[in-house]
């Protein structure tokens, strides 16, 4: 049976560092002590720990090797009509300000993440980006390891989705691509519905350090509506911790929601049918970090600035909405 060591080895092979894009521990995988669940315990607890450890190994072994060349423009072009139907008819998508994204060169697009594991705002934005700039423009998205290892989601790699890691980020930006990241990741995407209009990166600042390192502009991408596609009740952080998912699968959360067709939906591993909430996305002007914050900018200052800009925009978008789901 694969164990956590295998998982770690596989993660390194795939270019994944513990802590992901967001530095030391941003994605929930601490870089400190690793009390491997399979290493001890007895009875039911031990059995559960071994099962989780095995699952972690299985997941890690499924994470594809990071290869930017897997992105396939022809494949994306052929999927655009399907995305258009989903975005236009089901989510009544509206994307504003795409002209704010620099026409060429590497750029780091930073979004707030909503909608649980299905992330409808990403679908709406991907369609808009690929239609606006053409599928020929290199465009990558960073995703959680678990997303890429899910059965049936291999096609995401053809869309340019790669596992979230500083190494993959470096590769994408060095190639001159536009890169979309969601610093809030699994923490933000499963926030309760009463926090739906809140940008919450959980203090993750790795994306700023990466933007400074590669000297690329940050373009904030703010979306609303995704968190109304289900009734998200809790991130279930306590549950994830109790099951040691934070150590084995880099999952800080095990979300609990009311969703179709399951009713009570724990984990959202089987997906769900999203409510047809109206999704609106607004792209803000690029932030050239060194031009605006000096040669040696403070990461904290930039973080506060980006977060404030995004929250102000989200507040404005929320003020436009009259009713949940309907928009």
């Amino acid at each position: 049976m694969a164990d956590a060591h295998t998982a770690a080895r596989d993660a390194i092979r795939n270019g994944h560092h513990e802590g992901g894009v967001n530095g030391a521990s941003a994605n929930g995988a601490g870089s400190g002590d690793d009390p491997r669940p399979g290493s001890g315990g007895s009875g039911l607890a031990g059995l559960a720990a071994r099962a989780i450890s095995g699952l972690a190994g299985a997941v890690s072994s499924r994470i594809p090797a990071a290869d930017l060349d897997e992105r396939d423009p022809d494949f994306i072009r052929e999927r655009l009509p399907g995305l258009w139907l989903l975005s236009s008819l089901y989510f009544r998508g509206e994307v504003r300000g795409l002209g704010n994204i620099p026409e060429e060169g590497p750029v780091l697009m930073v979004g707030n993440h909503s909608g649980g594991n299905l992330t409808p705002d990403t679908h709406v934005f991907t369609l808009a980006f690929c239609a606006y700039f053409g599928v020929e423009r290199r465009f990558y998205q960073l995703a959680h390891n678990l997303v890429l290892s899910m059965p049936g989601l291999g096609m995401l790699r053809k869309f340019g989705t790669v596992a979230a890691s500083p190494e993959n980020m470096r590769k994408a930006l060095d190639s001159g691509a536009a890169l979309l990241v969601y610093p809030g990741g699994d923490y933000e995407v499963h926030r309760p519905i009463w926090e739906r209009n809140r940008v919450d990166f959980d203090g993750r600042k790795g994306f700023i350090r990466q933007a400074l390192r590669h000297d690329v502009p940050i373009v904030p991408v703010v979306s609303i509506g995704g968190q109304e596609t289900s009734v998200f009740l809790s991130r279930g952080e306590w549950l994830a911790k109790a099951l040691a998912l934070d150590k084995t699968l880099r999952l800080k959360v095990l979300p609990i929601s009311l969703a179709l067709p399951w009713g009570l939906n724990v984990g959202d591993m089987m997906g769900h049918i999203p409510l047809p909430a109206k999704i609106t996305v607004e792209v803000l002007p690029p932030i050239h970090l060194r031009e605006e914050f000096g040669e040696e900018p403070s990461v904290d200052e930039i973080y506060d600035h980006v977060l404030r800009l995004m929250q102000d925009t989200l507040d404005a978008l929320a003020a436009e909405r009259r009713y949940p789901v309907i928009g």
Partner: peptide, 16 residues
Amino acid sequence: GVAGAGLLGWLSERLS
């Protein structure tokens, strides 16, 4: 249209 988009391509063309 989009060559190779299949049924969804056909449907999106008509709906648009």
